[in-house]
Amino acid sequence: MMNLFVLQLLNGVQLGVLLFLIAAGLTLVFGIMDVINLAHGVLYMVGAYLIATFAAATGNFWWGLLLMLPAAVLVGMVLEFVVMRRLYARSHLDQVLATFGLVMIASEAVKMIWGTSPLSVPMPEILSGAVPLMGPLKYPVYRIAVIVAGLAVAVGLFVLVNYTRVGMLLRAGATNRSTVSALGVDINRLFSVVFTLGAVLACLAGALVAPILSVDTGMGESVLILTFVVVVIGGIGSIKGAFLGALLVAIVDTVGGVFGPIWLRQILDPAAAGQVGRVLGPMLVYILMAVILFAKPAGLFGRRA
């Protein structure tokens, strides 16, 4: 049981850093720009399709990853310029409608360009295989690499937000947008930077996960809801909150999802235990969210409006 717990903890951290990459952009966009972006999951999917395309074209995962980044910047900038810019002054309902429309357009577009069959991305040779953990336990090298990459990005973001000029504007924007604008900062350019940064992070998450999962059109929707939970738990606009929230949510989800069915199997038949246990993990996530919001209504690191 101890072995299983350790493995699930690692799986939880791995899912956590991925959720963080997606949630970081979402929380900034929501916190600073006050835009609810339902299409954020689309960027995650696009990242995976981009790396699948580039990796297939060059025959190499690393080239794929390298080419994916500028393409992601381009996607983010175009999206901001064409759609998002028109939504800043609109009501939240308009934003939800517009970005939901974007979700549908994007998934149809992806189907038209890449087809409905799932794509797969080859794993880089150097990161395939598994390392011995303890006793007979092994853990895939690639998942460890994902954890390391995610943590590196988290550190980079932390430095960016706390020690640079852009970061200062980001923090200021998240606290009080109108004052920042009144001080003569080009708020449109700031927004453009924030949105593009968020888009690149989400695309990166999609690209990192592509060799583990098959790349298909539904992948964005499945993570989006968990990401929203992360943002709410962490506090809207807080990168630190997004990081802690992502780890918390992911670990509760993976550990609860495995131990739930195991405990339930002692009182229920396997099929029913599987069914009930499977919802136990996600259910615990929402209970966690309710408890945190009860204690801190603005989330862990959120500021009261």
Partner: peptide, 8 residues
Amino acid sequence: SELAQIAA
């Protein structure tokens, strides 16, 4: 999650 159980 399932592979973790198999490994354990």
